[in-house]
Amino acid sequence: MRTSIIQAFAVALLGCVIAFTHNAVSVNGINPFRRIGDVPVLGVEEWGTEDGLHFLTLEEVRSSLASGAMLIDSRTEDEYAEGHIPDAINLDYFEMGKYLDRVLPAISSDRGIIIYCTGLDCDDSEMLARELYLLGFRNLFCFRGGLEEWENSGLPVETGSESAGYGESG
């Protein structure tokens, strides 16, 4: 039994060494100690007075877009290609590293950044907003209703792998 336990620890230790080395060089590597849970989520009364994330309703999203806010779709590339809100930029939350170099220059806190995913059942938009907050971006908003609420309200959806808005902002 002692030999088995030593072997198990050896395998686990080797696994840790390889895993952290790979994580350090991988494009999707993450800092496991980043304080993603500490990003403040604001209530309506704090909006505009404090730093943090805020959740928007569909109407608020539409009025923010009219005043120049930008949209980020946090779903996968395939889901984005099947249908997304017009002018949204794709930044797959699960593989952020692949997209950051291309997408980060196109993002500006000055315009307000609205992030969405599928709908109420997914929290990828909130998690992506937290990641962007930790990267230094501000004026971050989450549209919890996501594409489902947008589509159910009869609003137009764009298909294809690159939004028209991509070129404008990039």
């Binding site: 088995s4 336990i5 072997q7 395998v11 840790c16 993450i30």
Partner: peptide, 25 residues
């Protein structure tokens, strides 16, 4: 980060025989 690599190492251990009892544990 770590779990998939441990799964991979254990899988390789089952194929090769290296540290197999530890991998089984």
């Amino acid at each position: 980060i770590v779990l998939p690599w441990i799964e991979l190492l254990c899988g390789l251990s089952f194929i090769s025989g290296f540290f197999m009892r530890g991998a089984a544990l």
